[in-house]
Nucleic acid binder design. Structure first.
Lengths: 242, 242
DNA sequence: CGATTATTGTCACATTTTGATACAATGATA
DNA sequence: TATCATTGTATCAAAATGTGACAATAATCG
């Protein structure tokens, strides 16, 4: 699909996909003390969207989500979870699809695969942002990180989907130890704390946070220390699970 | 669909349903200190299954789930939540469907709606068992409650679906106050405790449980007391939310 | 009718967890 | 060497939880 003719051929014909079902991925990253989300912008439009895709007829649902993720980030072995299915009858967006395709010089037949109601299965992913290499899909020209608190208006019901993903992430952060998927292999306690504060959107007391997180016995202190500013250097840790 | 001819007509023709998508409902009830689940048994077979259904083309996903629930239990305004989507490629059960239909005297064309891969959206429901009036669907002859710990082998991947629903319920019981949906309007503290113990499959200390549950400020003590056995009568409570 | 018995509501005390704050140690810079 | 911001850890109070006990009560039984 590197050539535009391939793209045209792909989208103008009915592909071998499960009809009426799509996948949308909310891909979280963490950088500069900001929680970020990966968004696409479609060519020649002002339409921003979550990365998404469809399910091949001979493809597991979860594999389809992993494939979308790999296509956008270049990453495999990613933390990925379903969080909700969006299934209202009004999830049919013929006109928007038409405009997105028009922006790519593609005209759609009236009975096109996309000209239908879609049920969308929401997945959220937690990745080490520094390892990702965001890549736009064939229909979009950018694939970039956006600060969670500066998200533009998105197409379809994608703002709602994002909101639900965030709620799920906040709950998961408390109950499971998923947060470390957003950090590199090694990190300082302060970095974890900033991550928690950003996701939960609340201040935490440093000493208590440190005591708590260390008491869980899930971190291994690395011998080395960090070099940095004019003060005591923190230890580095790595996550060793439960 | 009371007549068998209607049933035949309904299933032999391609209905106006979303293709490749189904709904399965794990309906929990609580009775005699047992957690129960509603199961169907298909006519003239030994096939047990979770109640399920499909989505009408002009029907919200959640409405479809509510409809299935009402059809099986007679109840509206039910606590209902999605918990997982099951989407492996091998979720295609042509032969079993054929046998179920055969048990109802229906033959299926090779390209029948059901002769396809299905993605199934799992919902779990919590109901006051004493209010439900279980009703089999057109293809089954029984719709009954089964003790969670005595579940027969189910068709398709329904045992796995049930297991996942149970995990979700256990987590939800701790984090939200969903348990009260399984009880009648009024109940004793001991009845709540038995419910928690059964769902979580662990013993709880009576005095601590009572202190904890009362401290939440979610229960209103009813004036009346219960009559019962040769000992002090407990107070009745009702759930008043948060 | 009073004694017995099982269960309930509540309390008392120990232990653990959490909240709030303090302080010495450290690694650069001035 | 003094200064400064940050880190690791300690301290003490408050809240939550674990453990056990006890009086009150509603039937049943002798």
């Amino acid at each position: 699909m590197t050539e535009n003719t391939d793209l045209k051929e792909y989208w103008e014909n009915k592909p071998r996909l499960l009809p009426n079902v799509s996948i949308d991925c909310v891909i979280f990253g963490f950088h500069d003390n900001q929680l970020k989300i990966l968004l696409l912008k479609y060519k020649n439009t002002e339409y921003y969207a979550l990365p998404g895709g469809f399910i091949n007829l001979e493809e597991d649902l979860s594999d389809a989500a992993l494939r979308v993720l790999e296509e956008r980030t270049g990453l495999r072995d990613i933390y990925l979870e379903q969080f909700h299915v969006f299934g209202k009858t009004d999830r049919r967006y013929d006109e928007t699809h038409r405009q997105i395709m028009a922006g790519n010089g593609i005209t759609m037949k009236p009975n096109h695969f996309l000209m239908n109601r879609f049920i969308s299965i929401g997945y959220y992913a937690l990745i080490d942002l520094s390892k990702a290499a965001p890549k736009p899909d064939g229909l979009s020209d950018t694939c970039d990180w956006y600060d969670l608190y500066k998200i533009p208006s998105l197409i379809f019901d994608h703002n709602e989907i994002l909101q639900k993903a965030l709620e799920t992430l906040r709950l998961a952060l408390d109950e499971k130890l998923v947060g470390f998927n957003l950090l590199p292999e090694t990190f300082t306690i302060n970095e974890i704390q900033k991550l928690y504060e950003t996701v939960l959107n609340e201040k935490l007391v440093r000493s208590n946070f440190q005591r708590k997180i260390l008491s869980l016995g899930i971190l291994e202190r690395i011998e080395k220390k960090m070099t940095g500013a004019a003060n005591k250097a923190p230890y580095l840790y790595k996550f060793i699970g439960e």
